[in-house]
Amino acid sequence: MIPANFIYIRPDCLSQAAIAFAQMQKEGRAPLYYGGGSEIITMARAGSISPGAVIDIKSIPECNVLGLSGDKLIIGAAVTLSTIKESRLFPLLGTACGRISDHTNQCRITLGGNLCGTIIYREASLPLMLSDAELLLYGPEGAKICAFNTIFNRRMQLKPGEFVVQVHIPATAINLPYIHVKKAAQEKMDYPLVNVTALRVGEEIRVAFSGFGSYPFRDFEVERALNDRGNSPKSRLDAAMAILSQQAHTDSEGSGAYRVFVLRNILEGMLEEWR
């Protein structure tokens, strides 16, 4: 039960969405773009948000695209996690999507929703940080394409009225070797205590983290340390951990010190596997 009322708008095209958003904003309704809805519904029930309008992007054709187009894999923001997983088009992203929330919710949660969520994990962002992905955004000024890593900094940094239409991933990245390790406090299906997602581009290891800190991140210094082939695996690991340890975050899932322990074990396993 959501106590407050809101206006529900489901546009059929991108421009309608942007216009509706602007209109609602003008009316002082603090609108939100709406994907799978799970986060908006739960937060509205709890009273932590109360949007005066939601703009559901699920009927916009561009937001529902899923497939290879030229040298890019295009995934619409309204495509659900389970659809991405079952498509097997980008195995690393599919694996990540298959470990977010639970299966039933994966049939509802959209890629755009996970990326734009306020819950700190946003695990679908990690594969995109590593794969030179781009975002197609739409907003008051129309469409634009940006590098994922310029828009996603801790969280999505969208301008008012902007929303994610699509994610574009270079076809060259989608079948690269990867490692995806998600450890939770006790069982498999839970928030990540530590999620380590790594992609190997040639000899180069790229790695991104969720759960370990209070936001998802990729750290080039950590990658430099891990890729420093002149050093032994142990000293590469030590160097990476020296940088990472400061970011460890404490919450009800686990302490920062324990996260450091878990992360070290995961990275050690990764270096062993990719020796």
Partner: peptide, 27 residues
């Protein structure tokens, strides 16, 4: 739970399971 966590409200929508506490009726 009304929070999408317990599954007791699950129905099937267009062939897929859905937690009906996380779906707006208008959707």
């Amino acid at each position: 739970c009304r929070n999408g966590d317990c599954g007791a409200c699950t129905v099937i929508m267009d062939g897929l399971p859905a937690k009906s506490c996380l779906v707006l009726a208008v959707e």
